[in-house]
């Protein structure tokens, strides 16, 4: 299919399904041990509050990194404004639930739609820009939407919005996990359609894509729209989960930077790269969040590690470990040559 895929080593191709299946089974079954009935039956408790918080956060970033991958990795348009979709999804749920009294489930259906419509509106003018210009313009959108929301009274202005608290670790974990699976499956499906080939063609060479008959404008906007809907869904779940949203926690540019890093370090343009990137980086970041001087040094170490990853394995961890030549010097030299201008 895509050029990279057939280079997967045999152990990964053979082992991928069982390993992935086991991981998924664990994620689906382990939380069930926290149910009262399971505890009364004497099952070991595999998950606690912290487990739920971290697992839900990781799943949320899997959604964001995978969604970013659709526009940034498959289509080649590095968006620094995806966090705006997250924020819009969050605020859609926030307003509908807290001010209008809508049920959460219904509001959660509207959130991705709002983000997608916004993506169409900003995508049509911005997706004409390429490279750095697109990155800077989307960064502007990300910041601007947050600032605007921060100044609208009915949206809670700088105070933010409070939602009625729903206490259910299980519910939000499973919702986020479902969103993550949806994002991964969406990417997988896209890569097997004519649409997906069109996106890859745009990434490789947009003019060539146009001359082979790809409707570049429509495809780019569609990809942006899908990314926005998924990101908005994650934002909507986050709003109810956290029961408090403001500019700082849903429009944080650092979240946008993180989703890009996750997708790029994991392997932009691949199905599982962003998943690997999100899981590994988020776990490291959460571990380092403790504070203290050791944490500071570890953060510096993380920065250096990321720089090394981007320079030496620009096609991502997935490509590196699954690559044609494993840990060889030739691989490093070759990718370095291919990716430096």
């Amino acid at each position: 299919m895509i050029a990279r895929e057939r280079r997967l080593p045999r152990w990964l191709r053979r082992g991928g399904l069982p390993i992935g299946g086991l991981a998924l089974a664990y994620l689906i079954l382990a939380p069930l041990t926290s149910i009262d009935a399971a505890q009364q039956a004497g099952l070991p408790l595999l998950t606690d509050k912290l487990w739920f918080r971290i697992a839900t956060t990781v799943a949320m970033f899997v959604v964001m990194a995978s969604a970013w991958n659709i526009i940034g990795g498959l289509t080649g348009y590095a968006s620094f404004g995806n966090v705006a979709f997250f924020g819009l999804g969050a605020y859609t749920v926030g307003v509908l639930v807290s001010s209008r009294g809508w049920p959460f489930a219904l509001a959660l259906v509207v959130a991705p739609l709002v983000a997608a419509v916004f993506a169409v509106l900003v995508g049509i003018p911005l997706l004409r820009l390429r490279g750095h210009y697109f990155a800077v313009a989307t960064l502007g959108v990300g910041v601007a939407v947050g600032e605007v929301v921060n100044n609208i009274g009915p949206l809670g202005a700088s105070t933010g919005l409070f939602l009625p608290i729903v206490r259910s670790d299980l519910l939000f974990f499973y919702l986020m996990l479902a969103a993550a699976i949806l994002a991964v499956v969406t990417t997988w499906v896209i890569l097997r359609t004519r649409f997906g080939y069109g996106l890859l063609a745009i990434r490789e060479n947009e003019e060539a894509a146009a001359v082979i008959g790809v409707n570049t404008t429509f495809y780019k906007v569609a990809a942006f729209c899908i990314a926005a809907a998924l990101t908005g869904l994650a934002g909507g779940i986050f709003a109810q989960w956290n029961s408090f949203i403001n500019q700082e926690n849903v429009f944080a540019i650092t979240n946008n930077v993180q989703m890009i890093l996750m997708a790029v370090v994991g392997g932009a343009g691949t199905v599982l790269g962003p998943v690997a990137g999100a899981v590994v980086l988020k776990l490291i970041i959460e571990t380092l969040a403790g504070g203290g001087s050791a944490a500071v040094y570890s953060q510096i170490g993380l920065g250096v590690l990321l720089a090394i990853c981007v320079i030496f394995i620009p096609r991502g961890v997935i490509d590196f470990f699954g690559g044609r030549s494993r840990l060889s010097l030739r691989y490093l030299r070759q990718t370095l040559r291919e990716t430096s201008a």
């Binding site: 890859l200 063609a201 490789e204 060479n205 003019e207 060539a208 001359v211 291919e338």
Partner: peptide, 14 residues
């Protein structure tokens, strides 16, 4: 059908 100047291939594809 247009074959543009400078080939414009998808160079990392086969």
């Amino acid at each position: 059908v247009h074959v543009p100047q400078g080939r414009r291939l998808f160079s990392t594809m086969t």
